[in-house]
Design a protein around this nucleic acid. Sequence first.
DNA 1: TTTTATTTGTAATAAAAGTTACAATTTGAT
DNA 2: ATCAAATTGTAACTTTTATTACAAATAAAA
Lengths: 194, 194
Amino acid sequence: MARTREFDFEKAIDKATKLFWLEGYKKTSIQKLMKTMGLGESSFYNSFKNKRDLYLQCLKYYNSNITSRRAEALNSPKPIQKKLRDLFNVIFDDLESGTGTPGCLMTNSLSFEVLKDAHLRKYVLGEMDNFRLFLKNTFQQAIENDELSVDFDSILTSELVVTYLQGLFKISMTTTDYSQLRKQTEYFLKALGL
Amino acid sequence: MARTREFDFEKAIDKATKLFWLEGYKKTSIQKLMKTMGLGESSFYNSFKNKRDLYLQCLKYYNSNITSRRAEALNSPKPIQKKLRDLFNVIFDDLESGTGTPGCLMTNSLSFEVLKDAHLRKYVLGEMDNFRLFLKNTFQQAIENDELSVDFDSILTSELVVTYLQGLFKISMTTTDYSQLRKQTEYFLKALGL
DNA sequence: TTTTATTTGTAATAAAAGTTACAATTTGAT
DNA sequence: ATCAAATTGTAACTTTTATTACAAATAAAA
């Protein structure tokens, strides 16, 4: 009935995601996107409404590929201390294996250029909130399992860990010595009694 | 001998700083800068080499006005616990009184668009390092004064606090409920035994 | 095989951005 | 009062950016 697409949709999204990740939202031009994705104007505007829509699709792609594995690390039968170390290990492994891609695309999206766009803001903050909630529930479950004291503040700790993660991703852009950051994280968790 | 400048140099820098702060480095166009600063092309290019040079001057202006007061908070005869609370109080007061200006201009400059520029990178990372060193020395002094145990890890703690600060500034862009963040900070400091 | 829906290539359009050119203007020193 | 040096206003130029127009190409359904 109709002509079939010549390019690989997911591969194109993957390329776009990495470009956005490297260059940021605002700085990445559609021309560079088209070149990187191997598309002409027609294919680009036919498949993606505009830059914002493409970015949103890239964020979703990133979350289902990268961020999801972080939640998975928390979703295991291991003790809470191990879960958290698994979480940070997944994160550090990503940072170390990343081919020059800086920090975390979601954290990078916590910028004014992105947050000013109502649609993007809603998605980014929503996903962040989901993660924080997941973390909080993980702590609460640990309390119920007698792994943590009933005095343990699940809410405050989950918020603090999220804040620390934001900082960690920022700092990760300034160094290549991740072993130092791993030590810092261990120190942080110990300080929290975890 | 020569014609005098008609515009107020510092006021122009101040306006530019606030615009950069609001819009980010890359997104801020020279046209908008000129309009905000009240300058035409001639005056702009005559007084500032280009966007990067102006940004550097704005960062320096920001540091001597804003960041410097943070170091001052640490530079008092008070006990270390009080010093740190003073530091965070200065920061939160700035955040709360900021007229819509998001987070910290230096932290915001910890982005790829800025870090990719060698000149800007050197300055931003240098200033960050200065602050971390100042913090470390503050802790070491507290150990010498028997305010902290000799086991206290000044290096790791100073690094951790800097990381937390980065996260705090990011998170501050997503909320207006700073009282919640103040609680989180208190929790963080207590966890570190401070 | 014709039709039909959709993809693709090429080109064009329109707006915005960064920069430069140059003449007119202003100021204090001579 | 005149001159030298710097500032300013206007306009132009060049690039980049985002988007649209339209015809040619393609693949499967009728």
